[in-house]
Write a protein that binds this DNA or RNA. Structure first.
Lengths: 268, 268
DNA sequence: AAATCAGGGTTGTATGATAACACGACAAGA
DNA sequence: TCTTGTCGTGTTATCATACAACCCTGATTT
């Protein structure tokens, strides 16, 4: 009975085809950066579709940053070929130093986000944070529900900054960090930890509620330091304080042989 | 009359606004994965735009992988797939508030990067920063060479943090900010500015060379505040202080009548 | 020479219509 | 009862046309 019947693979929309065609023209150099595209009407007739379809295709390319258009003038191929996406190599994260770096970056963002949140949070933000904390209290430490509430708390803080990019970046980084932690899968759980972690979160919320930016920063910093320990990262300083007095690394690229330094990351 | 200088307020297309709105609904959980979106007609009337605009918006969201649509059925929020790439919507950046947010994020990263760099920089880092500054001194303010040296300086600072992700993110964000500034193309240039900007950079380098984290932070903060002004962003606070007291937007779809809000865009 | 204005060309938006498709309801046939 | 065919409704996909806003250019006027 289980006929394969794979997905009604309906052909892509016309606008997609048109977008691909134009994209190909650009990729193959027939349309160079700075060049002006034919008019929408011209494209419509050459492709044999309506101007509407062409517009959807162009809207797409525009959102991808490949072309740029101005009313009354036309559409142009954008100059810079700078990457418009940022990716984090999953494998690289398995390396201890990479993980530590990402954790540090996350810390910076979280700490500053906490400060901003303390200044800009609304009542609904506070309520949402409270809810998230309640969720953590109700769930057993380390459970799925607990993790979700934890994540939710941090997400809410990010949202309270009223800066969408802050939220976007923070969620992105946090997700990568969390994945990596789960993949390593070495967490010891205890009731003490639940209590401690919860306490850290409560301090954060208290400071944010009070509008105390410095306090929120400090509380978040402490929280992350604690989290670092719980994850097996020594030196809570990852989030803030630097440590070594700038050891010299004279030559530029010198990361050879990192590999073995990694093997025993995680663990304790 | 001259005084073009109206913010970075380049008018985004209606489709961009609509796409952002829907995007926000999804991000904030009011539209959950698997949910069906309202019909195009319904969206058109609630947003107060034509169905065409809605379609362009949906086409974008579809190309971004956020929603999925099928003829005869409707459009649906795609099942949550952990994004493995981070993208910045090029068009959304044309909106002044988005730009300001990204600028703020950049500020946070730069300031913290300066602090880390002060603690971790090597001699070669310092030399590279010095070279970049020399390049700025040699080139006329605002020229291509000047901009390249400027970028190079900041890149070097990021590198001195010894945190590759910091560099990656910072470069990514800075590039977007820079592109947006160039696109707006409203900068006044003067010799004073060259001197001032150069001075700001020199202060940063001095502090980093001295290993003074707080000083580097402060210098970088000043620099960014100055840059914000030069770009037409009032309130250097973009890098630190908050602004509005978080207005509420409680109910889900309530964007009726975007129309008039848009009418008098651009121009002044 | 400079400012103003008119016109054409182009993108942005609105509107209505048609075709293709999904889905449920309902009735006819087994 | 179960299957099948048909139909009507709702939705997306596409088309076609019209108008508004805008840029650019060139002629006209000052």
């Amino acid at each position: 009975m289980t006929l394969k019947l794979d997905k009604v693979n309906r052909g892509p929309h016309l606008s997609t085809l048109v977008a691909s065609s134009i994209s190909r023209e650009i990729a193959q150099g027939r349309l160079k950066p700075g060049d002006q595209l034919p008019t929408e009407q011209a494209l419509a007739t050459t492709f044999g579709v309506s101007r509407n379809v062409v517009r959807e295709a162009i809207a797409r390319l525009r959102s991808e940053g490949r072309i740029w258009s101005q009313q009354g003038r036309g559409a142009f191929v954008v100059e810079s070929t700078n990457p418009t996406v940022l990716t984090i190599d999953y494998e690289a994260l398995q390396r201890a130093d990479s993980f530590r770096n990402l954790f540090e970056l996350r810390g910076i963002l979280e700490v500053q986000a906490a400060a901003l949140a303390a200044k800009r949070r609304s009542e609904t933000d506070l309520a949402a944070m409270g809810d998230a904390l309640a969720g953590m209290r109700a769930a057993p430490y380390g459970s799925v529900a607990w993790l979700r509430s934890d994540l939710e708390f941090h997400r809410t803080v990010a949202e309270a900054t009223r800066n969408s990019y802050m939220g976007q970046f923070l969620v992105f980084v946090s997700e990568r960090v969390r994945e990596s932690i789960l993949a390593a899968g070495n967490q010891q759980k205890s009731d003490d930890m639940a209590r401690i972690t919860l306490g850290e979160h409560e301090r954060i919320l208290t400071a944010i509620r009070a509008g105390d930016a410095e306090g929120a920063q400090a509380a978040m910093r402490d929280h992350l330091a604690g989290a670092a320990l719980r994850v097996g990262l020594h030196d809570g300083e990852a989030a803030a304080e630097p440590a070594s007095p700038a050891q010299e690394v004279p030559s530029p690229v010198r990361h050879s042989r990192l590999r073995k330094a990694v093997r025993g990351r995680a663990r304790g």
